[in-house]
Amino acid sequence: MTKPETPSILCIGSVLWDVIGRSASHMRQGSDVPGRITRLPGGVAMNIATTLVRFGMAPILLTAIGRDPEGDELVAACARLGMVTDHIYRSDDLPTDRYMAVEGANGLIAAIADAHSLEAAGAKILRPLIDGPLGRAEAPWPGLVALDGNLTLALLEEIAAHPAFAAADLRVAPASPGKAERLLPFLGGWRATLYVNLEEAGILAQDEFGDSESAARALLDRGAHRVLVTDGGRSATVADANHVITRTPPEVLVTRVTGAGDTFMAAHIAAEAQGADAETALARALHAAATYVSGDTPL
């Protein structure tokens, strides 16, 4: 797919195959129940890009995908969905990454993310942005960037200090609570927006919180420029030096959870890109996430 004349946003991070098993039954360790198993393009960067396309934006993917048959199929699927795939790093010796999860009526039961190829590729995925068609140190990318925490801590530290990102509107999310600490380079002076859930906020702030607002305020105290903290169906807070806004999501029947946080982040980015104010953007993001977890949008 050719690059659009004015690309809307860079999506940097994991693009892989999601293998998701879902059951309508409540599950526990050792459960063996009927359900459905699906395989679809996934990964944090991919999930964000998918929602951005639905909101009329043109995401450019910066990631690592193998030159194996699974990788060829994945790149073709991304292009069909409306994403720019020209700048993906294709590796001859690294396999295409995968993610596997099991979800029951009581939520996510277990998940394994195999993003080793993305980690091994490292800074190679950033070549088009650092010294290529998308930007250079002396002429940095001036627009939106969605960055996920599946990159290594060393690479995230490099990004936090690299002049190629100096003009970007950077939006950052951890890939999971287990990788939340990788966002530490973006605390303290860096003008980035962090999207985290309550557990991830606690890891970053080295504390425990009972609600999204207290977590958001604590992250600001630790040097965050702007944060959005979600707490499932209970609350969500957007906070910066000028305001703290907390809202409650719509009540819906939850039928899936994998990708909900990515949908929230993408919907919020799209709303702000369209000129929405802080309160409206938060409301739109909560509505989009609620619609997603209710199953009212395609898998």
Rank of each mutant, 00 (worst) to 15 (best):
V293F: 05
R182G: 06
T152V: 05
A113W: 08
I60H: 11
A64N: 15
V19T: 14
L153Y: 11
S294H: 09
G66M: 11
I245E: 00
E181F: 08
R98E: 14
A241K: 14
E5H: 12
R191Q: 14
L198Q: 06
M57L: 15
H268W: 15
V229K: 05
D93Q: 11
G295E: 06
E251A: 12
A154S: 14
A120N: 00
S176M: 03
S117L: 05
H243S: 14
S91T: 12
G232E: 04
K3I: 14
R67D: 12
D18S: 03
E251W: 01
V227D: 02
W190H: 15
T263W: 08
H243T: 10
K124P: 01
G143K: 12
Y292P: 00
I9N: 01
L134A: 00
E157S: 11
L74S: 08
L156D: 06
D18N: 11
L156W: 03
A236D: 07
G122T: 01
A160K: 03
A164W: 05
P177W: 10
A146P: 05
L151I: 08
I60L: 13
G135M: 08
D277C: 01
H26K: 15
D72P: 00
D131S: 09
M27L: 15
R234V: 07
T152N: 06
A205G: 11
D131Q: 10
R54Q: 12
D131G: 05
A276N: 01
G132P: 05
V145I: 15
T263S: 07
L198V: 02
H243L: 10
R247V: 01
F186V: 05
M27K: 09
A205N: 11
P249F: 03
V229D: 05
N106I: 04
A276P: 09
M27A: 09
L61M: 15
D231T: 02
G295M: 02
D277N: 15
D277T: 06
R171Y: 10
T258Q: 00
H225S: 12
H287V: 14
A120F: 02
F264A: 01
L118A: 04
K179N: 09
V227W: 08
W190L: 12
I125P: 03
I112F: 06
G82I: 11
R28I: 13
H287N: 13
H87Y: 15
L153R: 15
L253K: 13
L299H: 01
H162L: 08
I37E: 01
E70P: 04
I109W: 02
L61S: 13
L170V: 09
A236F: 00
G210M: 10
H243W: 06
D92Q: 11
S212E: 11
M83A: 12
L118G: 04
W141F: 00
V244I: 13
A164T: 03
A218Y: 11
N47R: 01
V244M: 00
P34T: 09
A76H: 14
Q29E: 12
L10Q: 04
W141Q: 08
H116M: 09
R22C: 09
R191D: 10
